[in-house]
């Protein structure tokens, strides 16, 4: 089979089966690209994981791009990524259509009423783990609160003030990056 078609199809399957996002997709990706097809080695797979930890973008997209590039260059990257998002596109549009049609049912409304506070809670959890990461450079609750990163605190405080002053999100992210770089040079 044409390698591009195969890439598309394999990443279609990965996109369809990785439920739970993020790390939950790792075993699926590994099974297909490392174990079945030997497109990349285990070391490279761990590299993708490391890169994904520190670059923008979901790990699934990153893996699709990395594997695609390695197998068939830039075109491969595009094809693999397209394959990966195809199931999402179909399912999301389908559910949007169903919501439009049946969204007024009390059962659906009730379910969503239960989900909304859950999302608020999950956003708060993500916020908290990002505070740990920004100020204490650890992903879970810091073991030693006195061992904080002063640069992280400075940028976080400035960024909080900027948010309150209604600075645009993009300016804020970009500015914080530059602030990190400047502090890295100075301290």
């Amino acid at each position: 089979m044409n390698i591009l078609l195969l890439l598309y199809w394999e990443f279609c399957k990965i996109g369809l089966f990785c439920v739970g996002g993020g790390y939950a997709s790792l075993p699926w990706i590994q099974a297909a690209v490392v174990d079945d097809y030997h497109w990349i080695t285990m070391t490279e797979f761990i590299d993708i994981f490391t890169i994904s930890q520190m670059t923008p973008g979901p790990i699934g997209i990153n893996a699709a791009t990395f594997v695609g590039t390695k197998i068939a260059g830039t075109l491969g990257a595009i094809v693999a990524t397209l394959g990966f998002v195809t199931p999402s596109l179909i399912l999301c549009l389908l559910i949007t259509y169903l919501m439009k049609k049946y969204g007024e049912l009390s059962a659906i409304k009730g379910t969503l009423n239960g989900l909304r506070p859950a999302v608020v809670a999950l956003i708060c959890t993500a916020g908290l783990s990002f505070i740990w990461l920004s100020v204490w450079n650890t992903e879970s609750v810091p073991t030693n609160f006195a061992d904080f990163d002063i640069k992280g605190i400075i940028i976080l405080v400035i960024a909080m003030i900027a948010v309150k002053k209604k600075v645009s999100v993009i300016t804020l992210l970009f500015g914080s990056g530059v602030a990190g770089l400047v502090l890295g040079l100075l301290m």
């Binding site: 530059v178 990190g180 770089l181 890295g184 040079l185």
Partner: peptide
């Protein structure tokens, strides 16, 4: 320097998440 740039952006994102979370 790449790491410091990313670290800075991470702190910026943290500020926005805190704001959105508290608001909700």
């Amino acid at each position: 320097y790449v790491q410091m740039l990313l670290k800075g952006m991470q702190c910026g994102a943290t500020a926005v998440i805190i704001d959105v979370g508290l608001n909700l």
